[in-house]
Amino acid sequence: MTYSSGQLLLFFGLIALGTLITRALPFLLFPEKKEIPKYIKYLADILPFTIIGLLVVYCLKDVTLNRTPYALPEFISILAIIVLHLWKKNTLLSIGGGSLLYMLLVQNIFV
């Protein structure tokens, strides 16, 4: 560690501030007393259904399809999660099983 406490405070503080801005902005733009426009209400209802897909892709953004291991660990593990979840409907089992399988694959098979 070559940084002073003051430097770290500034660095992490600005990241905290940036994060807070992205979270608070909609609430600052549409305070409670103001009627929320119809269009924004529509967005509020529909966006949750679109954003989870974006988050899945965001998690997988660094996989590459054109060289080894051709995203195989991700593909196999996600397939396992889907099958497990449709079969057992147990969230914990699906997440735990899929993650353990993935770690097994990237640590032992697709090293």
């Binding site: 989870i52 988050l55 996600i78 889907i82 699906s94 990237v106």
Partner: peptide, 15 residues
Amino acid sequence: KGIDFVLTALFVVIF
């Protein structure tokens, strides 16, 4: 290695 896949798994299940 690979531990961050927990998050991916969580979002897949929510999806």
